[in-house]
Nucleic acid binder design. Structure first.
Lengths: 97, 97
DNA sequence: TGAATATATGAACATTTGTTCATATGTATT
DNA sequence: AATACATATGAACAAATGTTCATATATTCA
C-alpha cells in the first residue's frame, strides 16, 4: 500500500472518516445497513429533530456514502457504498476488544 | 452485525474514527505502517512542529492505536492494532473510486 | 552537577463542527 | 388554488478541536 499513497489521498481519506466520526452520522449509517429509510423514520429512530438529520444526510450524501430515492412526498435514503459496512465493522471490532 | 450493536458501541466507534478523521493523525498512522518512528522523525516527515505531533500522538495512544517504547532519550512509536491498516485501506479504496 | 537533547503538557487562540430555529421548497390531495 | 405533509436550507450559537508558544520532565554525557 504505502508507496502508492500521496498526501491528497490521505487528506481525502481523513475527510471520509469524518463521516464515521460523529455519533449521529454513524448511527444513521448503521440504521441504513438493514434497509432504506425515510428522513422522518431516521429522525424518530434516533430521537432527533428532522432538521438535524437532514443536515447530516447531506454530509453523507456529499461523501457518496448514501443515495436518495423519491417516492411521492417521501425521500428514502440507503447506503451507496460497499465499504460502509466493512469500515463500521472494523471500528466495532476495535472498540469491542 | 446489526442485532448485537447497542448505542454505546456506536458511540465508541465514532470516537475511534475521530482518530482517522484528521489529516495529521492519519498521516502519522500511515507513516507507522512501515516501521516504528521517533517523535522528531515524525515531525520532520510531516513538516510540523514537535509539540503538535506530541499532542496527536497522545490522542492515538489513548485510543490504543499506537504504543511507545523508550530507547535512551528517544521514544519510538509504532502501531498497536491490527485494524489500523485495514481501516485506512478501506478508506483509501473508497476515495480512490 | 550542569548542559544538551528528546518528548510531554497546559493555556490560549482561531477554526471547525453539530444542533436549533425559522423558513423555503417540493409533492399530493381536496 | 389552498392546504397539508415531507424534506431541505441558511443563519446563529455553543461546544469541540488542532496548533502554537512557553515551559516542564526525563535521559544522557561531559
Amino acid at each position: 500500500m504505502k508507496q502508492e499513497i500521496n498526501e491528497n489521498v490521505l487528506f481525502d481519506a481523513a475527510e471520509l472518516f469524518k463521516c464515521f466520526a460523529d455519533s449521529t452520522r454513524i448511527r444513521i449509517l448503521h440504521s441504513l445497513i438493514s434497509k432504506e429509510r425515510s428522513v422522518n423514520e431516521i429522525a424518530d429512530l434516533l430521537n432527533m429533530n428532522q432538521s438535524a438529520i437532514s443536515h447530516q444526510l447531506r454530509i453523507l450524501k456529499d461523501a457518496k456514502l448514501i443515495k436518495k430515492r423519491r417516492d411521492g412526498k417521501t425521500i428514502y435514503y440507503s447506503l451507496d457504498d460497499d465499504h460502509v459496512y466493512n469500515i463500521i465493522a472494523q471500528g466495532i471490532e476495535h472498540v469491542e476488544e
